[in-house]
Each structure stands twice: as C-alpha cells, then as structure tokens.
Design a protein around this nucleic acid. Structure first.
Length: 488
RNA sequence: CCAGAUUUAGCUUAAUAAGGUUUUAAAGCGCUGGACUUGGACUCCAGGAGAUGUAGGUUCGAAUCCUACAAUUUGGACCA
C-alpha cells in the first residue's frame, strides 16, 4: 500500500475514497452500490446517532419501528410522493426459490409470485400514515411524535461511499399535529436540532434555509434544509425537515375529533438525516494526511504511543495518564504493539483521525514531560505529565472549536455575492463555493441556471436580509439573495 | 441510465512496440517465526500460502486479440 494518499487538489474524489479505505471506515461489498460500514466507521455513526437520539428524546419524541416492506398500493396514494420515488424502488415480487430444474443453483419459483408486490422502503411516510390512521382519533392523541432508526433503499444509478448508496442508514421522524402552526414549528425546531448537531458535534457549519419549490421533498409543502460546504467547493445537503401540510393525512384519511367535536385532518412533518452525514464529516475536516475527526465524535480521542516500544517505566506513566483521562470522560488507547515502530504508528493514527496523540519516551520521562501532537494543526509540544489530563481536556475542546472555526472561515471565504451573470459564471468556475445572488423566484429561471452552469439553488437562507435586487440571469425584480452552488 | 477508463495473489505492480523460447505467470509489501530499533511508514535472517473478474470467440498456441456481461472508477443525466 502506498504511503501517501492522493492529494485533495489532485483528485478530490480519489482522495475521498482513499480516506475511507485507509481510515477503515467502510468498504465496497459484494452487492453493487452497497457498502460495508466497518467497525471504525460504525463507531462514528453510533456516536452521531447517540447524540441525535438524545436530542430527539429531549424534545419529546419516542422511537418506534415500522416495516421494511411497503405494499405497492400504499406508495401510490400520494401522487407527488410516488412520482418522486418511482424511479428508484427495489421491488419484491416473489417469496420462494427452488432448485433449478434445468441445471445447478437456485431460481425464483414462478408459482410463488406475490399477489401484491412489496416495495423496499425508500422512506416510510406511506406505511406510517397508514398506521397513524388507526392511532389518531382524537385531539387527545396529538401531537404524535415518533422517530425511527432504520435502513432504506433507493436504487441509485451512481453511488458514492456514504454520500449516495443504494442502501443507507438514517433516522426518519414522522409527526402529526392538530394545527398547521404547530406542525410548522415542529419542522423548524427539528431543523434547529440538526443545525446545532452539525455545528456543535460535527464542527460542520451549516446554512439553515428553505428549499425552492423545485427542490422540495416529493409531497411536502415546505422543505427546510441544512446545507454545508465541502472543501472542493461543492455543497452537501446534510439534513432536511419537511412540513407536509395535510397531504398525507388526506391521502390516508387521518382525521381527529377536535374539542368542539369537529372532524379535522391532522398536520404532518417528516425529517431525516442519514449516513450521508459521515460523508460530510469526512470532507469537511480531513486533509492530505488522512481523516480528521472532531473530538466529540471520535471513537478514540487520544492515543498514547510508547517510544520506541512499551517498557515498565513507560507503561506505568501511560496507565496513570489513561486512568486520569478516563476519569475525565476522555476515551484513550495505549498502542502497545511491539511489531510497529513509532513513526509508523504516528502516520497510522493520523490517517485514522485520532484528535490527540501522546508520545512517551525515556528522554521525555527524564524531563517529566510527554509529547502532545494535535491532529487538526499537526502541532507538537512537550507538556508536563503532571496535570496532563486537564491540559488534554482543554485541548480536545480547543480542537473541536478550531475545526469549526476553520470550516467556517473556509465557508465564509467561499461564499461570494455576485450581481452579474458573467461574475456568476466565473466565480462558479474558478472559485466554487456558495454564490449569493438575486433570483426572480421562478422555477423556470432556476432550471435555466442549472442547465447553463450545473449550479442549483441550495436554499433560501432563513436569516437572509431583505434586499431588493435584480435576478442575476433575467434581470427581473428579486426580494433577496439565494444561495447557489454545485452540489453532491 | 449515457460516455470514457480500469480489472493479474490481501494490496501495489511486472510479464519487451509485437500472442510463442525454462510462461511451470514474476516480484515487493502484507502474513508467520526471529534479530534489530529512544521519534515518522527502516534494516536483516528464516518460513509458508496466494492470482490472470465471468462467459464465450479467434488461434496450432491467449494474461496479451475480439464480443458480451459484471464490478470498480472519472465525468454526466437522474435524484429528499
């Protein structure tokens, strides 16, 4: 295996794939478009999941589980919804195999055809709303705030590790409310949770916004999104929260009795983030030396390396430091492998993104210090063994902040206001990133711009300032700027 | 799904511009055992295992040429 990985500015896609391989996050499986998430990668996902789950529960949501299979007829009950997913569904048609009468191996038993074909869920709105119909009869049953952690399948034609795979893991929240306002508030609150999670835990700055009609979830009245900017200047839609209005309630006849004894349709939301966040995490922070993980999500936050190899004296100090760190809630590993040299270990743990490395050698011990190397800046310093645990706790915090600030600075530097079409094209071509420009509000213009430049409207930022202007393409009046970018 | 590229052992690569001499497909790394080693992927000794993506075709003879399929990959179309 080569020592170095491909550099970001040489071939970003290749770099991304190599990081995943070398950091042992995931690998391709024997099934086309599906990946194996390896223990290291899954540990990061579990850390993300644990925090998100906590945040959902804190705001009154509960977990449940709905079936993997959805009767085909369910999917077609909401017209826009089915249209959005029809082209990427895996369909179960049979339930039995038999020995091939003409040869070796197994074939599908033609007599075992299902009466109604089943769709492997691409998302669960339909099966869930079919269920909610029975659960909701009174205003007393509302709001209904349910989340599920599940896998879904979307038959993608072109896949990329974590960013777009045929099967992926996610959470999908599905809520029912008595009033429109309550449902809209729910969708926005979840967006806030997503943004908070992305920024505080993933150290990934995001723009909160709403999608244009064209980019909206199939079946939603409003789609809120968090958009992040990757190091290659492309945007990543990282989480979405949808206000579904009464579309699904009407399609599945979900009505409740108000206090006034009147029958009303409920108001709905759905929202989700997926293992795609892993892709965002990798691309936001990592560098040409490998993966960089923010301390709050790193399965191992500190690694201790004995130089040149473990001995009694070094072990004693290492175990003491480990115990002190563990007592402070820091996850730490002591690399006692005697078959690898320190230099190899340094590079290996850098590749895997461990935030802090401690090196302990005889010379260090004589001086009562250890070497502390931080992954984000690659800076090294000697620190006294005495009180090292407090130093590390602060350092982890500092690294977490630095990663966020660094990513934010990148995004700020790569968000460009443009007012002319020529400028739009040249910035997109030469610099990339978000382009903040006026848009006349029509789908027609949006599609035209996409056709001409491949840039789409990522979102209309929630905090954008009102500002009269002229559409960058058509010159028609505009109420404010929107964010354009090429996207994953 | 469209266009291009790729596919030889766990990984990386070799096998003359050209199908054939000992091609009985070669090697390095990794693996196993040992030595050495106080700061960046060493070095040395010993050991064992391992491959031409799949299916056809051309040929006296195919890793090498052709076709199809598959997977991967880059760019695109499509896509919450």
């Amino acid at each position: 295996m080569a020592k170095e990985i491909t550099k970001r500015d040489e071939n970003y896609s290749k770099w991304y794939n190599e990081i995943i391989q070398r950091a042992e996050l995931a690998e391709h499986s024997a099934v086309r478009g599906c990946m194996v998430i390896k223990p290291t990668g899954f540990a990061v996902w579990e850390a993300m999941k644990a925090e998100l789950d906590r945040m959902f529960k804190e705001t009154g949501h509960v977990n449940a589980y709905f079936p993997l299979f959805i009767p085909k007829s369910f999917l077609s009950k909401e017209a826009e919804h089915v249209e959005g997913f029809a082209t990427e569904c895996a369909v179960v048609t049979h339930h039995r195999l038999m020995v091939d009468p003409n040869g070796k191996g197994m074939v599908v038993d033609p007599s075992a055809r299902l009466e109604e074909e089943l769709i492997v869920r691409p998302t669960s709105e339909t099966i869930i709303w079919n269920t909610y119909k029975d659960w909701i009869t009174s205003y007393r049953d509302l709001p209904l705030l349910i989340n599920q952690w599940a896998n879904v399948v979307r038959w993608e034609l072109r896949t990329r590790m974590f960013l777009r795979t045929a099967e992926f893991l996610w959470q999908e929240g599905h809520t029912a409310h008595a009033t429109q306002e309550e449902a809209e508030d729910e969708a926005k609150m979840i967006l806030d949770i997503y943004a908070k999670f992305a920024e505080e835990y993933m150290a990934m700055p995001v723009v909160k916004g709403v999608k244009t009609a064209n980019e909206r979830f199939a079946g939603a009245l409003e789609t809120y999104t968090i958009e992040a900017l990757m190091q290659d200047g492309k945007a990543l839609q990282s989480g979405t929260s949808h206000f579904l209005g009464q579309n699904f309630a009407k399609a599945f006849e979900v009505k409740y009795m108000t206090k006034e004894n009147k029958e009303e349709y409920v108001w709905a939301t759905s929202w989700g983030v997926s293992t795609r966040l892993m892709g965002g995490l990798i691309m936001t922070h990592s560098d040409d030396a490998g993966l960089v993980l923010p301390p709050k999500l790193a399965p191992t936050q500190v690694v201790i390396i004995p130089i040149p190899k473990p001995n009694e004296e070094i072990d004693a100090v290492a175990f003491k430091i480990m115990a002190d760190l563990k007592a402070k809630g820091v996850s730490v590993k002591y690399d006692q492998d005697t078959t690898k040299r320190p230099g190899f270990k340094f590079a290996e743990h850098e590749m895997k993104g461990i935030p802090v490395r401690l090196g302990i050698g005889k010379r260090d011990l004589e001086k009562g210090v250890v070497e502390v190397a931080r992954r984000d800046t690659k800076e090294k310093s000697s620190q006294p063994v005495e009180g090292i645990e407090d130093y590390i706790v602060n350092l982890l915090d500092e690294i977490q902040k630095n990663l966020f600030n660094r990513a934010l600075a990148y995004r700020t530097a790569h968000t460009t206001e443009v007012d002319t079409w020529d400028e739009f094209k040249s910035v997109l071509e030469e610099k990339g990133g978000f382009i903040s420009a006026h848009w006349d509000g029509t789908t027609e213009t949006e599609l035209k711009i996409k056709e001409l430049t491949k840039a789409s409207i990522r979102c209309i930022a929630l905090d954008r300032k009102e500002e009269k202007g002229k559409c960058v393409l058509t010159g028609n009046p505009s109420e404010g700027r929107v964010l354009f970018a090429k996207a994953y």
